[in-house]
Amino acid sequence: MKSTYSLYTIRRRLMKKNALWIITAVLTAGFLGVMYSFAPAYVCSSYLISSVFMYFISVYISMDLHEKENDVFEEVLLLHTKSDTEYYLSREMLQIRMCLIYALILSFFPVVYSVIRPGYFTRAVTPDDLICGGLMIIFCGICGAETGDFFHPRFIGRKYGVCGAILITVLAVCKEGLIRTFAAFKILDIITPPITDSLVLLGNTDSFDITAILLIVLHMFLFSLAVMLIKVKLLKRFGYRM
């Protein structure tokens, strides 16, 4: 665990003055500015739309991070580890850390905003909203990170990787309509992240069904875990490019 943390520390230090922070901060600020400019707003749909945004931001973060990886630097790091697991875990830790930072901002923003601007939301933001909404945002972020990182340039060209990530995202967003039209598209429930399932479940209500949210979060966790395991297997199989 100490080695994994040291590897993660190297990666974290490399990210200190990275332009990625600026781009994602600007995108998040822009999103919050637009999203919370129309009043009154529903609490639950605000959180759920933020969770979808979190997914997009995480895809972008993970694809930017892996594009910036230097093969020689990574090769040297890998050879210092006692096992591949430490190395690959340190990569996951960095991605999840970046996603968590933005997830916390998006989760707490409605709470802070409701204090600054009372009456903005149709009802008070409760701790249950923060927990359910926060979980949705965090796990959508993790789904996005794993989806984006899956299309790693070590085994798929950059162009195809970007197209693949876009395709999976579009299918994830549109799958409800596709499944209603063609039953065969049910497979999309397995191969795409369930980022819009909560929006479908919510319907016209403005309260979280905790059980349903936990099931969706579990689905996201299992999806992310499966994608991560397949990705690591492929990365080990393909090795480095040069």
Binding site: S3, N70, H80
Partner: peptide
């Protein structure tokens, strides 16, 4: 490696982290 990459991390931070690993 033939060309060790110049990354934006200090020599101390990098080598000390390698030592910890």
């Amino acid at each position: 490696p033939e060309k060790f990459p110049g990354m934006s991390i200090s020599m101390r931070d990098y080598l000390y982290s390698i030592a910890e690993i």
